[in-house]
Computed example of a mutant assay.
Amino acid sequence: MRPQTKERMTLADAEIGAVAHLYRAEVYRSTIWRTRLDTTTNWAVVTLGVALSITFSSPDASPLPLILVGILIIFFLLLEARRYRYFNVFRARARWLERHFYAPLLYDGDLHMEENWQKVLATDYLQPEYHVNYMTSVGRRIRHNYLWILLIQSLAYAGKILVHPSPITSVQQGISRADVGPLPGELVIAIGVVYVISWGAIAMWSGWSDAARASVRRSNTYMG
């Protein structure tokens, strides 16, 4: 049995330099993944813009492109949620270093190694894992970007039905305009309502989940 040595609670200058380079690397990786998030959002906006241009190009144009583009928007949302889980890992590590390394160093010159924040970071490197689940990631992307895209798509579709090729004069006329091939207008509208409510519910659930997570996030044992 080796005699138990006292744990060293300080960092040498070389070690502080290594941590500084580690922070730069995490910021760089989070920036790269943030750019990839913006890319998928741009794809969703562009495809919605194309659908709007086609649908409103003439009064007789079909509103079907606004329905079909919803499939692409969902695909981009799910792809972006997956990318967000990677981004969140690197963002959380950089934020952890800012909170426990740079902030104490700048505030009072003490790294507070006794709080064992470095062990939490080391464990995250030794056993890397996502810090949020997939549905939380989807909800955050809806709240931050896609809720507005989905609302614009839905409102544009409703507006097309209401005004083209001429303003509707009855509810039944509007429902009949929503027919898509063999699918009756009632079913198409019902699917649209469920579509909007579902994404809105996921966004609200994600907001409540993040609010509950906020108190845990302030602890010295939780990163992300």
Results as ranks from 00 to 15, higher is better:
95 R>E: 13
24 R>E: 02
180 V>L: 15
104 P>F: 02
146 Y>H: 07
42 N>H: 05
135 M>A: 12
223 M>I: 14
204 M>V: 11
195 Y>L: 08
145 N>P: 01
114 E>Q: 12
122 A>M: 11
58 S>Q: 07
16 I>D: 03
183 L>C: 09
106 L>E: 06
210 D>E: 15
195 Y>H: 14
197 I>N: 10
1 M>Y: 08
99 R>T: 06
56 F>W: 12
148 W>L: 00
40 T>C: 05
162 L>D: 07
131 H>C: 07
214 A>D: 13
194 V>G: 12
97 L>H: 06
196 V>Y: 14
107 Y>N: 14
162 L>G: 04
105 L>G: 12
70 G>C: 05
32 I>G: 01
126 L>P: 01
156 A>T: 00
73 I>F: 01
8 R>E: 13
56 F>L: 11
123 T>I: 02
213 R>L: 13
35 T>D: 03
136 T>K: 06
79 L>R: 15
179 D>S: 09
70 G>S: 07
57 S>T: 05
217 R>T: 10
212 A>C: 09
55 T>E: 04
156 A>F: 05
18 A>L: 04
219 S>M: 07
173 Q>E: 15
201 A>F: 14
46 V>L: 11
151 L>H: 10
78 L>P: 04
79 L>F: 15
79 L>V: 15
205 W>M: 12
38 D>S: 08
37 L>Y: 04
199 W>G: 03
23 Y>C: 02
15 E>G: 03
123 T>V: 03
35 T>P: 00
152 I>P: 02
123 T>W: 02
189 I>H: 04
125 Y>S: 07
80 E>H: 04
208 W>F: 12
79 L>G: 14
160 K>V: 03
38 D>R: 06
213 R>H: 13
14 A>E: 09
24 R>C: 00
194 V>M: 06
124 D>C: 03
93 R>K: 14
194 V>F: 14
216 V>L: 15
56 F>E: 04
72 L>Y: 01
138 V>Q: 00
7 E>F: 01
197 I>A: 15
218 R>F: 02
10 T>E: 10
169 T>Y: 08
145 N>W: 00
26 E>I: 03
100 H>Y: 15
42 N>S: 08
136 T>P: 00
142 I>L: 05
130 Y>I: 03
